[in-house]
Write a protein that binds this DNA or RNA. Structure first.
Lengths: 190, 190
DNA sequence: ATTATAATGGACAGTGTGTTGGATTACAAC
DNA sequence: GTTGTAATCCAACACACTGTCCATTATAAT
């Protein structure tokens, strides 16, 4: 897919830094994490950090974009039928992806991260939300998408933080119901 | 309501600092705002800042809590009938409150703030969301509340950032529809 | 093996941090 | 008004972090 060959050293440096940041964010807010502490934790020279990133926020952004890319590629690998309209099957798969990387997402969606993740996912969700009834004007359509995406993310966030007590399949069903039928749509749920 | 008499000097200091932070957040991310710059902008001595707050994040949190308190008092001042179930009337009033303080909320809900506002509002929303069908288990109930509150906030956020093209009444109607009927509930909207 | 380039380590000036002590000033209570 | 209290200001402090150098070393690509 991408022709650029990446130097192994660069790759290692970036992986170490990313892992270190994910770890540190578990313990303290991103705003309190200094470049110094981050590099110490990663075992990377501070000069090297600046060769790749501007500051810890920049690194965090890159990490998130990478994940968005992964999920996006996965979604695109699915058949059109599975994408439109948003099926419980596809949603279940995505939730399983979250489940398989709990630690990562708990860190990235937790208290100590920042809020930009939702905005990124919003763009991603455009792909799978184009089936929304096109009878509305663009502004209203945007409200609907915003409502659904942001609400869903925060439910997933909640689900992750509290130990994933429900199965991905059940969560997917719940989300679909909420998205299309709202609270009233839930009255006839399992 | 509150018996504590606050020193005029303290009040002035806090107001100046809060105004300054709200202004600065319009231009740059909270993480880049130093105590120094904040105090310069407020015309307050840096030592004085530390008498009241730990850092700019702390100040931001206080500002938000204050607003939450205001809205909460307003909601509680309404009759029980108007509160349960969530009426378009009450929601319209709240949206008007947002509209009356556009600049403030644009700043506090914008890109350069942080995400904690939603969590605060979540607590607030517990008050007006207790009418949700209690037939569900607590966990599911929590998901429903989370979905609705977070989705609503982000729609309001969107509405503010893009110039409040729709009236508070229409937004209230839209939100009610989304909350109770989801996307399907919107098919029969104005 | 040679070449290119990434990472390291050390240093630098500049800036922000959080705290201190004392002088000054404004407030509230009487 | 007078007085005691307390908030603000001001200067200074040691310390940490920042962002950017450059010379050196290590390692990947060919």
């Amino acid at each position: 897919m991408k022709g650029e060959k990446v130097d192994q050293r660069v790759k290692l440096t970036q992986v170490l830094l990313k892992n270190a940041l994910v770890q540190l964010i578990k313990e303290q807010h991103i705003s309190k994490i200094s470049v110094r502490a981050l590099c110490d934790a990663a075992g990377i020279n501070r000069s090297t950090f600046y060769n790749h990133y501007a500051d810890p926020y920049d690194l965090l952004m890159k990490i998130k974009q990478e994940i968005i890319g992964d999920i996006g590629r996965y979604i695109n690998s699915q058949s059109i039928n599975a994408k439109l309209p948003l099926s419980a099957q596809l949603l279940t798969r995505i939730l399983e992806y979250f489940q398989d990387n709990v630690e990562l997402f708990r860190s990235l969606l937790g208290e100590n991260s920042d809020s930009s993740f939702q905005k990124d996912i919003m763009e991603l969700a455009q792909v799978i939300s184009e089936h929304v009834n096109p009878g509305f004007d663009p502004r209203t359509l945007n409200y609907i998408k915003t409502f659904g995406v942001t609400g869903s993310i925060s439910v997933i966030q909640c689900w992750l933080q509290e130990g994933m007590a429900d199965s991905p399949a059940r969560m997917a069903e719940l989300l679909i119901q909420l998205l299309y039928g709202g609270q009233n749509g839930l009255r006839n749920m399992s």
